[in-house]
């Protein structure tokens, strides 16, 4: 295992990844679906942990995690598309996304940074009370737990 490899996982890897995934997936699903975003993030992190703890950490952990998150997001969208046929009121994120190509684009480094910036603005929205701004920022931007 190379030093760089080990370095990839030190400190706050899961927390940082959780923040990045939350920012990207919010662009996929929309801020109104933040709970769904959190579920997808959580399930991507858990999957990474469950696989890595036994097989070892892959060469590029961040890319691996993005792949998992992307696939989970696509699963959700596909399921929702099926549901749409029966209940057309579920069209919240229709306008912003849908295909694998659009989601892949969001995982480019500059797009991740852009998503995080959008998330910062969203968390600081003046209509939110200050405590909400802070707790939202700690949770979605920093990956801290609310407990």
């Amino acid at each position: 295992m190379s030093d760089a490899h080990i370095h990839d996982l030190v400190d706050h890897f899961f927390r940082h990844q959780s923040a990045k995934l939350a920012a990207v997936l919010t662009r996929v699903f929309g801020l109104q679906n933040l709970e769904l975003v959190e579920d997808v993030v959580q399930s991507a992190l858990v999957e990474a942990l469950e696989v890595w703890k036994i097989r070892g950490v892959p060469e590029n952990p961040a890319a691996w995690m993005y792949r998992v998150a992307r696939n989970k997001a696509l699963d959700v969208i596909r399921r929702q598309q099926v549901a749409d046929r029966f209940g057309p009121e579920w069209v919240l994120w229709r306008e912003t996304t849908s295909g694998p190509a659009q989601i892949d684009r969001l995982f480019l480094a500059n797009e991740i940074a852009d998503s995080q910036l959008r998330m910062i603005f969203a968390c600081c929205h003046p209509q939110l009370p200050e405590e909400s701004q802070i707790s939202l920022a700690l949770k979605t931007l920093c990956g801290f737990s609310t407990a």
Partner: peptide, 20 residues
């Protein structure tokens, strides 16, 4: 021993380090 959701990213990090 599967991670029960919702575990915090920090807790998962700790678990990961121990397995590693």
């Amino acid at each position: 021993g599967r991670t029960e959701a919702p575990a915090s990213p920090e807790a998962m990090q700790t678990q990961m380090q121990k397995w590693r």
